[in-house]
Design a protein around this nucleic acid. Sequence first.
DNA 1: GACCAGGCACATC
DNA 2: GATGTGCATGGT
Length: 216
Amino acid sequence: MENQKALITIYDKLYEFFGPQGWWPGRTRLEIIVGAILTQNTAWSNVEKAIVNLKLERVLSTPSAIKKMSVNRLATLIRPSGYYNVKAKRLRHFTDFLFSKYGGSLNELSMSDTGVLRRELLNVNGIGPETCDSILLYAFKRPIFVVDAYTKRLFSRHKFFDERLNYHDAQKFFMSRLPNDEKLFNEYHALIVRVGKTFCKRRPNCRTCPLYAPKK
DNA sequence: GACCAGGCACATC
DNA sequence: GATGTGCATGGT
């Protein structure tokens, strides 16, 4: 109960300070999915360069464009996003899955039940819990709370849980205490990333953070 | 030049 | 089941 109120208070403070974030920073579902894979352990500024390259080659217009392209060519295009060889394979793994089970149609995929969708995405090599949940929340508008490095860092520093808490339990911490609201989860995660990038890095800058509350 | 960034799979113990 | 390692670019 105390934690419930605290989570909402933190949300309100972040929202008041930063305003609405309008996530995901990508237009189409395919662009969001590709961005979610490319941003794994990578700064978004690098992902943007890779996305520009993909758009110039019209690879983001349809999943079949990705499926048709050689992995080597894909890797060259996404080079600025880092880990480009593994990520090119991961993009291909996703389109392979999409074609084998849904005829290459994101619309068909979007009809799936959330539980089914989650299991199937997690089964794709290269899509782990965070990437999967980012896709569910931002590409398919499902009410799923996304946990990332910033989330664990911020809430462990504020003594809600240990930073080493596993993904599932960290996610449960939020989802069992917050209303099941896709819009709220969307904005909350985006705000956590925003405050994380701005103040809550490995070398933090807490004193000017909107969440800074000195001990009395 | 060191450190960091919106993970994940795989090897090894 | 926990822990370690490879994957790589670009910004500070």
